[in-house]
Amino acid sequence: MNGPESLNNETSCLCETRDSHHSQEIIDEILEILGHLATDSETITSLRSCSLVSKSWVPTCQRHLFHTVTFASWNIGRWLNTFPVLEEGPAHYVKELSIQIGGRFCVPEVHFQRTLWFGNVRNVTLLGNWYGRRIYPFWRLPQSVTSLAIGTDVFTLVDTRDLLARLPNLDSLSHWCDLADDRAPPAIEAVPRGRFSGRLQLIEGPAYEDLTNMLLEVPTGLRFTEVDIFCNHKCSLSTVRLVEACAKTLVKLSYGISVYGEPHSSFQSDWF
């Protein structure tokens, strides 16, 4: 077999002989290969077709079809209509979840609690601009999350701290937006308790000092192996403190700087 075309032919053959002597292990292996190649629409369509062949083909196909899911206002209803029962849906196959929690395409807040359905999700990206409402009380993300990217300004510093405090397995953190106004912080503030041993990406802005200070207060310490910093001007004291807090574990340091606040090209492709 060489490439998706061969695989598509192979799966077509299998479709014709669904009751034949092919063992489930072989079929699963073929579907796994097809799933790993499912980067173009044609292959994804093939995978969808395969999922309709037999019930025994469904789990392997769904594991790849629902590996990455993006929720916004225009598609959340479709998911709920298709999979109204949690146990029968493919939520547990989702490894990467992106949610629009602000802006024009914001997912309705009533659906936020449903993020707990995705009990095996690893990477979560939160997107959307401030649209006049604070998301409170903040919902919880599954504790399985190891990588969190925050590209939204709907959170206050307290919200962010609270969010991190609920993610004990968090390894990597990306934050590239401002923070919402924090006018009424609670008396008792949560303490981030992730592992913080993966990758840290921060972009300097109005929230930068607060975020770095929050991370420096992590009681278990920072063990990031990779740090990406993008600053608008000079190398600040906060940045040096943050990077040096990871000195014993740091493997890769990337530092972008632009006096005009426009991310350097080598960072743009990775960050945005």
Binding site: L250, V251, K252, L253, S254
Partner: peptide
């Protein structure tokens, strides 16, 4: 307010990447 890194404190460091997207000023 400007500082620099002292890489002698980073025994595990393998890669360093500096990107400068501007012309002018102190680097």
């Amino acid at each position: 307010s400007e500082r620099s890194f002292d890489f002698s404190k980073f025994p595990t460091l393998q890669e360093v990447d500096f990107g400068v997207g501007w012309l002018g000023g102190d680097i």
